[in-house]
Design a protein around this nucleic acid. Structure first.
Lengths: 279, 279
DNA sequence: GTCGCTTACGGTCTGCGTAATCATA
DNA sequence: TATGATTACGCAGACCGTAAGCGAC
């Protein structure tokens, strides 16, 4: 037997309306077409599902028994369809983020709260980690969107700069407290001709603390500082913040929707702290 | 968007196999046909669901998100189909019986126990009542199959004699104990030229009891007596036991299946008590 | 070169509407 | 007689298979 959707639709409409004419109207069909659909269904099944006189149509017992399963199938089909449109418009599905800590701290709370408000049916998971962790998570398929400070490393990842984070100075002392050598930030500083830091630490927060207590200074991406007071260092190239996705997810609607929120967040933060623009 | 079953089938097969060639084989199709099905689905939805290279096919995030709903719909469709075939073969659905008390007592236990053993997915309900109750239940739609002693009364009911129940005598005394005038049995006796009973009672059981204690006799359908000893009354026409259904349920498969069991039961009972046959 | 996905094309078959027919209230 | 279900018929479009193409191993 080959039961198609039109058979289900025909059966349900006829069962609900009790009239070929009304059911046909409901399905935007001619009564004749509906009649053959029902007849096909009945003959292929081998049971009569409706008892017709010329004026009236009633479900047989077999028809009554079939109603629940038919309705379930019909609903499931519609839910599949609407699920797909939701996925296609970014209102459904899941979003697996991998973000660098500074990003997580600075932008994520605001961007995520906006996003989940406007996309209540999307499941969100977040992984926080260093740049290499982030890109690994993307490549390995544990996450679908990465936000981090270094641009793409793997060939099948596509990266795009979404923010140019300026390097700023905290404190005025002579001793420089910096991050571990080899980090993206320190590479930028080295490229700008600045000597390696006297004291190397793990996190920007610790660098700031030490700079303050030792009377030194720290050169750090501005995002890592929060509202802390700092001086701009315009001659040092900024740290590029990138979005990272697998090439196959380049048109993922959920990612697009989240990126929209994120960019709004970035702009609003940027406007609040520094009147001049961003990249 | 118009998502048809072939789109669902194509999506699921491709998601499961990860190859157009294999999925096409599974669907007994050419890879080309499958390719356009998937493409149609993707363009109508507006999302890419698979990432293809020439050699490999992988679900995108959107595709992954769609899998559960697609599979649910697919399963529901198949369950609807199998539900219908079960209904058509009498293995599913429901059976609402209305039976006369004598039938309920004599045949129902055996017939029903056989039936529910062989049709475990059929819901069974039983109404017990007099002949008019039975036919009313059928007409009103509370029951679908009636077994009773009088033949069909309502025009849109179809009746069929399934057993000719002989009238027998219990006791040898002169006083006749009988059922209330107007019952089917008493009409048969009147037609045979027998005078109305001296004492009229409600139930065959009571008639037998009184006949024994008063030293009278009772003329009753043999079915009402169980294993009680009795003498045949061959010159009195037997009571016809009928099946009753609405005309619309004439080909109801569950009813057919139950009738098969019932007739087997009747034959075995009949063979056990009286070597000679039935109608 | 080989394998597998995609595109193009032509034929078939499904499924529709129109119109005529049938049956009942 | 009027209404609504059914049957017959012809057409439009969906859908498939074959064959040619294209790109990656």
């Amino acid at each position: 037997m080959a039961m198609r959707q039109r058979h289900l639709a025909a059966f349900i409409a006829l069962a609900e309306t009790g009239s070929f004419k009304k059911a046909a109207a409901q399905l935007h069909q001619s009564p004749a077409a509906l009649s053959v659909s029902i007849k096909d269904l009945e003959t292929s099944a081998g049971v009569q599902l409706f008892e017709r006189t010329t004026r009236t149509v009633v479900l047989t017992e077999a028809g009554v028994s079939f109603v629940p399963a038919a309705r379930r199938a019909w609903i499931a089909n519609h839910e599949a369809e609407s699920s797909l449109t939701q996925i296609a418009t970014g209102q459904g599905g899941r979003l697996r983020l991998a973000v660098a800590p500074s990003v997580a701290l600075a932008w994520l709370p605001s961007a995520l709260s906006q996003f989940i408000r406007q996309h209540p049916r999307v499941e969100v998971t977040v992984i926080e980690g260093t740049a290499s962790h982030v890109s690994d998570a993307i490549t390995a398929g544990y996450a679908d969107l990465g936000i981090q400070g270094a641009s793409g490393v793997s060939p099948d990842l596509v990266g795009e700069v979404i923010y140019r984070d300026p390097i700023v100075r905290v404190g005025r002392g002579g001793i420089r407290i910096g991050l571990t050598e080899g980090t993206h930030t320190e590479q930028l500083l080295a490229n700008a001709g600045i000597e390696p830091p006297r004291i190397q630490v793990d996190t920007p927060q610790l660098a700031v603390r030490l700079a303050q207590s030792l009377g030194g200074h720290a050169l750090l991406p501005s995002l890592t500082l929060g509202a802390l007071e700092s001086e701009p260092m315009p001659h040092i190239a900024p740290r590029d913040i990138c979005r990272l996705t697998r090439t196959s997810e380049h048109d993922n609607p959920v990612i697009r929707a989240f990126m929209r929120e994120l960019l709004v967040t970035i702009q609003s933060f940027d406007g609040a702290t520094k009147p001049s623009g961003l990249a």
